[in-house]
Simulated assay, not measured.
Amino acid sequence: MDHVLTLIAPQGALAPDAIAAARASLAAAGAATEAPGWLSAAEAADLAFAGITPEAADAAARAALAGQPVDLIAQPAEGRRKRLLIADMDSTIVTSETLDELAGFAGLKDRIAAITKRAMNGELDFESALRERVGMLAGLSVDALQRTWEATELMPGARELVATMRATGARCALVSGGFTFFTGRVAALVGFHEHHSNTLLEADGQLTGHVADPILGRNAKLATLRRLAAEEGIGLEATLAVGDGANDLDMIQAAGLGVAFRAKPVVAAAARARVEHADLRALLFAQGYRAEEFVVA
């Protein structure tokens, strides 16, 4: 079989009936299938298939499982395990938008979060929106950065994703439209090889309201994906990119496996793969890793 459909649900939520329904839907669409193979009991399973495209398999299975908390990723079976991971940070590797949380210490969280939401859904130019939001924080004590960091939480599965891919030789990079204060700490905590982001400018213990040029935005994320793939001597088909916002969409669409993770509507609609229910371990299941192969950092 030259293709595989991976079904993933929150732990304990993937029922055999859901797998059977997905398999029947593929058969009805003209596919030949093999018996399912569990990657993690009641959590993730592979359905190998042939005879239809991944897009057709995805559409058929989604129709069959509509309303169920099951994520579906259809792709070629060959080359599933990727050699480069590029991950967004905010609302992807961490659960929050760190700029919004930082704004809370200036009494501006709701106001700035509203701008963030529009920018992440592609309604505003990312760079202009970033400058606007940072400008509103002029005069905020830099102590707020540490206080924001202390309240920041990792997305479930983040450590396992990076540790497992590192253990099998993949390069792992955090590429964020956020700020180096946070990306450096997240990269060290999770185990990324490197991090790329923006720099908040400060003077006399306060934020100046400015961000250093050039701003790392949508184009820069795509450029970083291409540059790191070239440095590794691999094609884009051997890369995995994950994010949730409009500034992630170009790199998601360019990667061999591009995943919209709990993403904004415009991103989820345009991405070839999306994860809406499971945690970041889903990206390992999508690559064919079994739960017992996961490295727990």
Rank of each mutant, 00 (worst) to 15 (best):
D2T: 09
V4G: 06
L5V: 13
I8R: 01
I8D: 01
A9I: 09
P10W: 00
A22F: 10
A24C: 09
A31I: 01
E34D: 15
G37D: 15
A42V: 11
D46L: 14
A56Q: 09
A63Q: 11
A63W: 08
Q68C: 04
D71G: 09
A77R: 00
K82Q: 05
E97V: 03
L102C: 09
G104K: 00
I115R: 02
A119C: 14
E127F: 07
G135Q: 05
S141M: 07
V142F: 12
D143L: 05
L145R: 00
R147T: 09
W149E: 06
E150T: 06
M155D: 04
P156E: 01
G169T: 11
A188I: 10
N198D: 04
T208I: 11
A212E: 14
I215G: 03
R218P: 15
N219Q: 06
A223V: 13
A230G: 13
L240A: 00
A241R: 02
D244C: 08
G245A: 09
L249Y: 07
K264E: 14
A268K: 01
A271F: 08
R272A: 14
E276T: 09
A278Q: 03
D279T: 08
F285I: 06
Q287W: 09
Y289F: 15
R290E: 15
E292Q: 09
